[in-house]
Simulated assay, not measured.
Amino acid sequence: MASPAVIAHRGYAGIAPENTIGAAVRAADRAETAMLEIDVQPAACDTPVVIHDERLEGTRDGRPLTDAAGRVWETDLETVRAARVLGTDETVPTLAALLEAVPETVGVNVELKNPGTADLRFADALAPDDRDDRRAVWAPFVDRVVEICDDFAGEILFSSFYEGAIAALREVGPDYAAAPLVWDDLEAGFEIADRYDCEAIHPPRNAIAGTGLTSTGYAGFDAGDRDIDVIERAHDEGRAVNVWTIETWTQFDQLARAGVDGIVVDYPGLGDRSTDRGR
């Protein structure tokens, strides 16, 4: 069995200022990195920028995320681009600048984080009457993101916690691979994956049956056995399973043994001690 693909979470956020060009370039230089994972949302001018939090003044372990403040989508692009990340000289990049900086030999998982509004439906499988409305909310932003990604010759995989984002992607960029991110409802995740014929599904680490990771609550899931075997069901449907987010080699090893296809990690080197490596 081949080792799972290593997906660098925000450019290995455990060792570098997340979602920055410097982190992305250094992550791409590592032979183990199959794909980068980044988050995108718009600045006030609608330009897609690479940042996770809704607000510029979020924190990481008590340290300010940036030296700026305000909602990202209400802040002018000059201010967003000048914001220094986690006390370093790295700044918040535009999506276009980051994709220009990384080689086309590494894939990029673009998480559609926010289209520029607080009016969102997080991790919901939408009722039929809501789908057109939610797709319309996301479509202008997703169209801009797709236009930028069209200039990148490497592999692009889109993911999102929002069904509206995936619906919009299927409308404006139907040739791109897509994956729903799962929060607290595996059945809803599979429903969305089925509805939009998604190539992958992205569950949290403790959603994988048969691993010790189910004994810990995480990402909306309580500790306990899982009613759905994510890997069996996804593989039967022809979908890849990419799991998030891993911090230790023992977590990596359990997921590798379970047979996942990709693992989103905060640190490089976690797969080096996996007993499944090269099996």
Score class of each variant (00 low, 15 high):
S3V: 08
A5F: 11
A5H: 02
T20K: 06
A23W: 04
A28Q: 04
E32Y: 00
T33C: 12
Q41S: 08
C45D: 14
D46C: 04
T47N: 05
T47R: 14
I51V: 14
H52N: 03
L56I: 03
R60F: 11
L65N: 03
A69E: 11
D76Y: 01
V80E: 02
R84E: 15
L86R: 15
G87Q: 10
V92N: 01
A101R: 03
E104K: 08
G107H: 03
R144P: 02
I148K: 07
D151P: 04
G154S: 11
G154L: 00
S159K: 07
E171G: 05
P180F: 10
P180D: 09
V182A: 00
D184Y: 07
L186E: 03
E187K: 09
F190C: 08
A193H: 08
A193V: 05
R195G: 03
Y196T: 11
Y196Q: 05
D197T: 00
D197F: 08
H202W: 06
P203Q: 07
R205Y: 09
A219W: 07
A223V: 15
D225K: 14
R226M: 09
D227L: 07
G238I: 14
A240V: 09
N242R: 15
E247D: 00
L255E: 11
R257L: 15
D261S: 13
G278R: 12
